[in-house]
Write a protein that binds this DNA or RNA. Structure first.
Length: 631
RNA sequence: GCUGUUGUAGCUCAGUCGGUAGAGCACACCCUUGGUAAGGGUGAGGUCAUGGGUUCAAAUCCCAUCAACAGCUCCA
């Protein structure tokens, strides 16, 4: 199973629109307006130039590097004589607004390389760019990654001229001075050309929109994202903790988090059993030869924990579960009548992610994959693939995750990091596309997003804040069966090779839980909530009654807690609200006499008094049916 | 991994010019027994991340280590 690699997470959250993306809907392909062609793109690009102008006026000795538009905004990298603070940004921002209120046209002119060099004689970064543009660029392996530019263009507004491909807006006064901000984010370090061996520059990020309303909405989403940060909510709700004594990137699940995870696991395990999967269990380490055979070892060498030496053998903390499952398949002679074989395991794997990549639960060094490997005949492939996708769709739908898209990741034809025959790759890719069409599943196709052994289908989920997360993945694999020489006996008695499907709806329990925390902002559907009902006895005279209510609710399978502290009821309610507990059951004399509870929802809605039996019925059906609503 | 910022009570944070540590929440106890968003009092709790250095004196200044946070392909 190949999961997103560093630095993939950045790309998942803020995907940069690319040229090689095609959107297929119901089998019909069309090209949406590319971001690069949009007015917003030009606004941001032009705003970056205006920022550079303002900064050069402010700090004339600064050297300018590059300043492209990016998703949601733009940045410009500078080599500065001193660090910038919030006040500097404010001043630059004010000057930018002034430039935007004035009338300065953006003008372009074509120049020769020599003219450009002469113009930028005091700007070493620009000189380097000019040289690269003139010569074309090659990567470390000598492969050409950019053709020599046929011409160079200079764009000028007011007193500022930049080496730039364009395009720009017509005039600085067409940009809304109230719809951008550079001071929403502190300047950060970035390396010249992303190379940590080279000069560190100061990057100033900006965001720009057509209207102030769009800017405010964007800033609001950033605030909201901060509020929903799963690390903050995880602390507040007692879900998990990460301590140095255990290790960075190695989260500890506290009881409240563990019950959520366990609930997800038990549910998915049952769904899988209902769909013909068989549970298997495999160890956390394996002989290094296993991974050399699978081909994982060279590909993942840099992101694995060092091998464990023991006597003459070397073991690896397992970076993935597939080789283990393959060995289970291989332990018996298989008949075509046995296929498909579907092995499922919540398998914990370990990867040595770079320390700077680690982030709460969403980027860790040890995580559990809701993994399964299907061994199918070539004839069964499309049907099984379709069934896997349906199962994933069912899982997402149950969780109320309805805004997702699918991405078919295929090989980058220019890269040599893939293994296996071209013919097999084409077969696998065709099978995935065919399955998508059969399902009517809208999907994009992206080059370079395949696993090293085969193409895949990823589900990209957009949460309530419209942030993108890569969730489940399904991969078709002809290569590992070949490497491990897997076989089954066909109807005619010949030995045939099965095809493998790797799949994981959640991807990793850690990451998935982190995403759920942020998506729901800690207000989980009742069936996932660590504590489903908090019982609030009004005085300690009512604790005894609360205990009998708790027993009834627990017998009905609900997770409940009694707040028997000697605080005032109002305070207990305030505390419960902070914990986002779905149901709050207040009980005093009136309730005890009526064998009832007074029900208040997490949403602050007061349902009033309700017979206990009625609440039990309501709550258990909501939990049992995994409904999102609370009444 | 690289760069920067940060590290003080379980949590969130204050701590001035170097003079041996504080608040709120949480916790314990006492008073209060209250019907839907935080009652009052008392108390306990800290090798100021770790190790070294400077100084009569270090939470504070310097160095190193560890950890957290942010940024690090987005190719003029």
């Amino acid at each position: 199973m190949s999961l997103p690699r560093s630095p993939g997470v950045r790309r998942e959250i803020s995907p940069t629109p690319r040229y090689n993306v095609y959107l297929f809907t119901q089998g019909v392909s069309f090209m949406p307006e590319r971001y690069q062609d949009s007015r917003l793109f030009r606004i941001r690009h032009s705003t970056a130039h205006i920022m550079a102008q303002a900064l050069l006026e402010y700090l004339p000795e600064a050297k300018i590097a590059i300043g492209p538009p990016i998703e949601d905004g733009f940045y410009y990298d500078f080599d500065l004589p001193r660090a910038l603070n919030a006040d500097d940004l404010k001043q630059i921002e004010t000057r930018m607004k002034q430039i935007m209120r004035e009338d300065h046209a953006f003008n372009v002119r074509e120049v020769s390389a020599d003219e450009a060099r002469a113009f930028f004689k005091d700007q070493p970064y620009k000189i380097e760019l000019i040289d690269d543009l003139v010569n074309g660029r090659v990567d470390d392996n000598g492969n050409k990654i950019a053709e020599p530019a046929s011409s160079l263009t200079l764009w000028t507004q007011d007193s500022f001229t930049d080496l730039c491909r364009g395009p720009h807006v017509e005039n600085t006064n067409t940009i809304n001075p109230d719809a951008f901000s550079i001071s929403f984010k502190m300047p950060a370090g970035a390396y010249w050309r992303g190379d940590e061996k080279r000069q560190q520059l100061t990057r100033i990020y900006g965001t720009a929109w057509e209207t102030k309303e769009e800017l405010d909405e964007y800033l609001h989403i950033l605030e909201e994202a901060k509020r929903r940060d799963h690390r903050v909510i995880g602390e507040k709700l007692g879900l998990f903790t990460i301590v140095p004594m255990v290790g960075k990137g190695l989260p500890l699940w506290k009881p409240n988090g563990a019950i959520m995870r366990d609930t997800l696991e038990r549910w998915l395990r049952q769904v899988q059993i209902d769909n013909g999967y068989q549970p298997v269990v495999t160890p956390h380490i394996g002989n290094i030869e296993l991974y050399k055979t699978s081909g994982h070892y060279p590909y993942y060498k840099d992101s694995q924990f060092a091998p464990i030496q023991s006597d003459d053998e070397e073991f690896l903390l397992k970076p993935m579960n597939c080789p283990h499952h393959i060995m289970i398949y291989k332990s018996e002679m298989r008949s075509y009548r046995d296929l498909p074989v579907r092995y499922a395991e919540f398998g914990t794997v370990y990867r040595y992610e770079q320390s700077g990549e680690l982030n709460g639960l969403t980027r860790v060094r040890g995580f559990t994959v809701d993994d399964a490997h299907l061994f199918v005949t070539p004839e069964q492939l499309v049907e099984e693939f379709v069934n896997v996708v349906k199962l994933i769709q069912y899982v997402f739908a149950t969780l109320g995750l309805d805004d997702f898209s699918a991405r078919v990741g295929i090989r980058d034809p220019k890269s040599d990091k893939y293994t296996g025959d071209d013919a097999l790759w084409e077969q696998a890719t065709a099978a995935i596309i065919q399955a998508c069409q059969q399902l009517g599943l809208p999907h994009t196709v992206e080059e370079g997003e395949a696993a090293f052994y085969g193409p895949k289908l990823d589900f990209i989920f957009r949460d309530v804040l419209k942030r993108r997360w890569q969730l489940g993945t399904v991969q078709v694999d002809y290569n590992l069966p070949q490497r491990f020489d897997l076989e089954y006996v066909a109807a005619d008695g010949t030995r045939q090779r099965p095809v493998m499907i790797h799949r994981a709806p959640f991807g990793s329990l850690e990451r998935f839980t982190g995403i759920l925390i942020e998506h729901f902002g800690g207000a989980f559907p009742a069936w996932l909530s660590p504590v489903q009902a908090l019982l609030v006895p009004i005085t300690d005279k009512h604790v005894e009654y609360a205990q009998s209510v708790a027993a009834t609710l627990r017998a009905a399978g609900l997770r409940v807690e009694i707040d028997s502290s000697r605080e005032r009821m109002q305070k207990k309610i305030a505390a419960a609200r902070e914990r986002l507990i779905p149901w709050l059951l207040v009980m005093g004399d009136r309730d005890r006499e009526a064998n009832a509870v007074s029900v208040r929802l997490r949403t602050d809605e007061d349902l009033g008094q309700m017979p206990l039996s009625q609440f039990v019925e309501m709550a258990s059906s909501i939990v049992g049916e995994k409904r999102m609503e609370l009444k």
